[in-house]
Design a protein around this nucleic acid. Structure first.
Lengths: 108, 108
DNA sequence: CAATTATATAAGTGATTGATAATATAAGTG
DNA sequence: CACTTATATTATCAATCACTTATATAATTG
């Protein structure tokens, strides 16, 4: 894959997407595995529209992909073309515990 | 040096500092060398109070250091305790040409 | 098709942001 | 000390933001 050098403006726009604690937590979650909206809502303990709007921003910024599977829409990370994010992603705190805690009453 | 793991909230706050094109350009400049305020104003072609306020935010966020030398105040990068910024810093476009262009009529 | 579940969109709101203009502080110079 | 140069601070304003509430769309199920 060929990765073009990012301009400062492009980098700033992408970093703005990561500069909100809700969105950065979503990214930390998606780093562990793909997730549907209801998973993220459960883990972050906020409203569904709130998460939905943050996911829309991440999708528009090219940070995540979405795939519908029957009634659920799954989001996954799409950062392979942004190598300048690698160190951030590698150093995000692990969300494994919060994901495990979700399992029993899973929504999807 | 011991570098503590950053929380998501701390990382988001720091990334917000890098998410503005003026501030990210300042960081790209300071990556090449320390600079005084008037250098940065000349290169970025904006007003002195604008740069001064951005520098204040970067300083409060612990991203830059300041040192006064007679009437000039020099700013320099201070990112050694934030390894998650490494890939961003390494992939910022070079500012060497814009810094060279400044040299003749340098203000300090 | 009616009811339910999952998700998106729209409208409204208070808070924050980046920039500007005006003014203040601080150091250097004659 | 008056003047200049470098930088910081303050006040203001339009724009953007994150969140909430309400409503719409879409798929599933009986």
């Amino acid at each position: 894959m060929v990765v073009a050098e990012a301009s400062i403006v492009e980098m700033a726009e992408t970093l703005k997407l990561l500069s909100d604690k809700t969105r950065l937590t979503i990214i930390a979650l998606l780093k562990e595995r793909e997730m549907c909206v209801c998973d993220i809502v459960d883990i972050l303990e906020t409203t569904q529209p709130n998460i939905s709007q943050h996911l829309k921003k991440l999708k528009n910024g090219g940070i995540v992909n979405e795939t519908r599977r029957s009634q659920w829409i799954y989001y996954s990370l799409n950062v392979n073309d942004k190598p300048y994010l690698n160190d951030i992603l590698n150093r995000l705190p692990s969300m494994k515990e919060r994901i495990e805690a979700l399992k029993p009453n899973s929504c999807c």
